[in-house]
Computed example of a mutant assay.
Amino acid sequence: MLGGTEFVGRAITEEAVDLGWDVTVFHRGRHAPPPGTSALHGDRTAPDGLAALADGEWDVVVDTWSGAPTAVRDSARLLADRAGRYAYISSRSVYAYPAPARLAEDSPLVDGSPDAGATAYPEDKRGGELAVLEAFDGRALLVRAGVILGPYENVGRLPWWLNRAARGGPMLAPGPCDLPIQYIDVRDLARWTLAAALAGHGGAYDLVSPPGHTTMAGLLEACVSVTGGRAELRWTDPDRIVEAGIEPWTDLPVWLPPGELQEYMFGSDVTKALATGLHCRPVEETVADTWAWLSSLGGIAPQRPDRPAKGVTPEQEAALLGL
């Protein structure tokens, strides 16, 4: 496991340990790896930062890197002759925008290069994909995840909604309430990725919940329920929210108003992943387990330094709701 101490990497590592796998975690040493693993230390961005991986053989490598594609390129080339398969956790952001309805794995992609430094997230992820394909050819698994939620989240989406619901009172709920959303629970991602690698699946797979899995109402009602029911959802017209200067996606995490961008983000055809065993647990379970984890931390979730903090301010919310 390249990484393995935070959010996606940690969930995949814990799943592998639970399966009884012999897991090696390669990381910088800033966080403790999950129990039951062996640790190797190194910084992929530093000269000779992969020295600890110079020896050893592995059946599967899992990589969650989202920065410069050169880091994926160097790791994949180093391990190509000593690892069976390489699973790269990519993103549905690699699809070109605007895009056709019901995006699938054969939809047009952004440009990318395995030899590029850090540029923009979509191009970086595509460059990482190309690096893995180049080094591992038919032994590469590209996991194109959508929005990832669940315990250990360090991006600030679901933790923000949970903390807001826990405060109680009138709560801005971005409409329409039946707006469909797609996401993947980090543990479902972990389980599918390891099973797919073990089964020898290769190529690209979109990994999000199937259409109809839940809606904004399903997500927010679960947040209110699990935090004690003290918040009152005030469903608000999308145009009013945008006119108030409140930013979709960042000020109101996960939410996008109806339209082309919303369909791009939440219109994935996941037939291919479902046919290979993808199972998505109910949104209520994802929300409840994330709340239990967040509560164990006193409500303060870790935050990635390279991602902006999420959430509308109490002042903006009150003004829009006329409080």
Score class of each variant (00 low, 15 high):
A87Y: 00
R164A: 07
D48C: 03
T313P: 00
Q303H: 15
E263S: 13
R30W: 05
V25N: 03
A292F: 00
D237F: 09
I184Q: 00
R10W: 06
R85H: 01
Y95W: 05
R240Y: 04
A46W: 01
C280V: 15
R82M: 10
V132L: 13
P253G: 03
V224E: 03
G36P: 04
E6R: 14
L2S: 07
L323F: 07
L50N: 15
C280I: 07
W291Q: 05
T37G: 03
G218R: 11
V147K: 00
L194I: 12
S295A: 15
G127D: 10
A197E: 00
P211T: 06
V287P: 03
L252Y: 13
W58P: 00
G67M: 08
D81I: 05
D124V: 08
R30V: 02
V132A: 14
P282R: 04
I89A: 11
C223A: 12
M265Q: 13
D74G: 10
A135Q: 06
G20F: 12
G175P: 00
L53R: 03
E284Y: 01
A99D: 05
A173T: 11
C223I: 09
A199N: 12
E153T: 05
L323W: 09
R85T: 06
G146P: 07
C177H: 14
D111V: 10
T313A: 10
V208D: 12
L256Q: 10
L2T: 09
T227H: 06
L50Q: 10
E260P: 06
A231T: 06
G218E: 07
V270M: 08
G175N: 11
P282N: 05
H213M: 09
E243D: 15
Q182S: 02
Y95V: 14
T70P: 09
V283C: 04
A292P: 00
L40I: 05
D237G: 04
T119P: 11
V208P: 12
A273V: 13
A204H: 09
P34M: 04
G299C: 04
T119I: 06
Y88M: 01
A52D: 08
G218M: 08
L320A: 15
A87R: 02
P253E: 11
D306M: 03
G200H: 07
A199I: 01
A140D: 02
P305W: 13
D111T: 10
P210H: 02
T13F: 02
D306T: 11
R82H: 12
I241V: 13
W255A: 04
A135K: 07
P211L: 08
A87Q: 01
D178C: 08
M171Y: 07
L141T: 02
T227S: 07
R157K: 02
S107I: 10
P305A: 04
G67V: 08
A118V: 11
R92A: 09
E123I: 08
Y264W: 13
G277I: 15
P108N: 09
R164M: 08
A131R: 10
V226D: 03
A116V: 06
E221I: 09
L2F: 13
S295N: 05
K310N: 05
E243K: 15
P238F: 14
K310V: 01
R28H: 03
L294K: 08
E15P: 01
G9Y: 14
W21H: 14
H213I: 08
Y86L: 03
K310T: 04
Y95H: 15
